[in-house]
Design a protein around this nucleic acid. Structure first.
Lengths: 234, 234
DNA sequence: CGCACGCTTGATCAACTTCAAGTTTTGTGG
DNA sequence: CCACAAAACTTGAAGTTGATCAAGCGTGCG
């Protein structure tokens, strides 16, 4: 499956069609850095930075309204690429939602390489398109779904993006407040949604940050707006 | 401002940094087609289609939940590019929200051209990034804003994307039901939000589909989550 | 130990949805 | 061009959902 040197070596990205696997791994100029949770990722933090590939951890695009309301419009997971050559955030700022390990690629060397290397261009394009898909789905989640449906959808998104395949144990990765801000809910409401899914035996908890999917077909149906009463005869 | 042949000739896209202005205009193989409102745009409709540039009208990415709830995750306006070479919709389908005039670009000739022409690659990349920015902003709109804030935000988005500059008269382009589905509201709630903005004299109506921005600073503040009571001393 | 932080639970309240008319606009055939 | 029907939009009243406010419970750490 893998066809080039892998950077980072975090097994959460193995098997993916990530940028790393396409060509960036062969770049010698990559720098590995650790970033503390809650750090804002911007040009000042990483001078000369053009592209950043996440090795481990999660980054979010955070938006703050005038009165302090916070939302997270998109999240980036291991293997995802952040492109600092353009403003893609729509006015939001990139923030480390967990501690990170990131691979940095410096400007000039990378730009030359990208110019010549069709595989890298392709890998970057793939990454953009994947991001577009995720974001479109996320809009659909936010627009018309109930709290429980949003949470079911989030758990499914986590599983899909962690490349967990059909694994039943899913890492939530984020704190409750960040999941809430991502799904457009308040933490209290999110907590009640967790309880609801647990009571209906669609999920159970391994620990606070790891859920076990107990009834996947039902969870998928709930995520897609199916009728809870019909799905869970309790 | 324009630096190449323009296709379509719709003045709503003049002055933009759209794909058309960058390089696609020089492609001779483009086909102009009219599309009726409510048509689903897919591979069956346009065999061999790779890229589509909107000349006039609006396209939306539509998602339907199991019980029929509908949402529109993203919209495309004149000058925007639809890329049919990949699935970017996150499971949604592209639908003409108004009657359209579109410019189609056929597969093989275009692929060759793109391969050789750096300007076209750049123009496509620009288009993707613009789309990403709009979608991120839209997520922030959906997540935590009230109905009135969402509507204010939609009006501002319309103005910005229509390249209306600081024009006060804005075309809403969409029907109420589509605006509602885009902003995650029911048409009744949207209607009440329109009344609210009108009563507060932030907007007035030219006709049903054209609003006049009466107090732009206030409208911007409302769109960004400012306190209505403080902004509008009524 | 005790404080801080993150999460959960309970009660109340506001906002949005739903349901049910009305009203205006649009489109069509005579 | 008008009449009429259908579609689109608005308005009102009642019902739900999620937000807010307030308190309580663990867990980790100085």
């Amino acid at each position: 499956m893998l066809n080039s040197v892998k950077i980072g070596g975090n097994n959460s990205i193995s098997g993916t069609a990530s940028l790393v696997n396409h060509g960036l791994g062969s770049i010698k100029s990559s720098i590995l850095k650790k970033v503390a949770a809650r750090t804002i990722l911007n040009a000042e933090l990483f001078p000369d930075l053009q592209y950043l590939v996440i090795g481990s951890g999660v980054v979010g695009t955070q938006h703050i309204l005038e009165d302090g309301r916070r939302s997270i419009s998109t999240i980036f997971m291991p293997g995802d690429v952040l492109d600092f050559t353009r403003e893609n955030t729509g006015g939001g700022s990139l923030i480390a939602l967990t501690a990170l390990k990131v691979h940095l690629f410096e400007s000039e060397a990378f730009e030359r390489l990208k110019h010549d290397n069709r595989e890298i261009q392709q890998a970057l394009a793939d990454s953009y398109h994947k991001h577009c898909r995720h974001t479109a789905l996320h809009c659909a989640d936010l627009a018309r779904k109930s709290a429980v449906e949003k949470l079911a959808s989030f758990i499914i998104e986590c599983r899909n993006r962690q490349m967990a395949g059909r694994a039943r144990k899913i890492s939530l990765m984020l704190k409750r407040i960040d999941i809430a801000d991502y799904m457009g809910l308040r933490p209290e409401t999110l907590s009640r949604a967790f309880s609801r899914l647990k009571d209906l035996e669609l999920i159970s908890f391994d620990d606070r940050n790891h859920v076990i999917i107990c009834n996947e077909p039902a969870l998928l149906q709930v995520a897609n707006g199916g009728n809870l009463e019909q799905i869970c005869v309790v």
